[in-house]
């Protein structure tokens, strides 16, 4: 066997071991490296009240209500499997709206309502001009169809 081939095999073996180790570490981190809890994670794993966490999901349509004091808002956050009520007092980002993504920082109170201290807007991977807004989006084909 030529020295060149030996080096090639050595390098490839090292590369395979490295990629394996990396993927293993990444999958072990899967839960730890999650930036936020989805409502379904909260339901299945449980988050103790008072613990500072982030909650992420979609703001349920027609769930956004402004309280009488004018600064507190109430809304529901969903991931399609579970829904969690949330409140927030303060200035929400411009992109925070119903039917759009949100990441809220805060903690759960004893009744299971998420009390947010900060709101971040999360948008999805779609970009389109305003004329196309409201069209139906097919997630598997990325096709837009006019709403009927």
């Amino acid at each position: 066997m030529k020295a060149k081939h030996q080096r090639l095999i050595l390098a490839l073996a090292a590369l395979v071991a490295l990629v394996g180790a990396g993927l293993l570490a990444a999958s072990a981190l899967k839960d730890e490296a999650a930036y936020f809890y989805a409502p379904n994670d909260v339901r299945t794993k449980g988050v103790e009240p008072g613990k500072a966490v982030r909650l992420g999901g979609m703001v349920v349509k027609n769930s956004l209500k402004r309280a009488a004091d004018g600064v507190t808002i109430r809304f529901d956050v969903t991931d399609g499997k579970a829904t969690v009520p949330a409140t927030f007092s303060g200035i929400a980002p411009d992109l925070f709206k119903e039917g759009s993504g949100v990441v809220a920082e805060g903690s759960f109170d004893a009744k299971g309502t998420f009390v947010a201290t900060n709101l971040l807007a999360k948008h999805d991977e779609r970009y389109m001009p305003r004329e196309l807004e409201g069209m139906n989006y097919n997630e598997s084909t990325h096709e837009m169809k006019a709403e009927r």
């Binding site: 999650a34 930036y35 809890y37 989805a38 971040l120 999360k122 991977e125």
Partner: peptide, 11 residues
């Protein structure tokens, strides 16, 4: 894709 992230998924 692996983790819940603030950054959106691949477009």
């Amino acid at each position: 894709v692996w983790w819940n992230s603030l950054h959106q998924g691949p477009s």
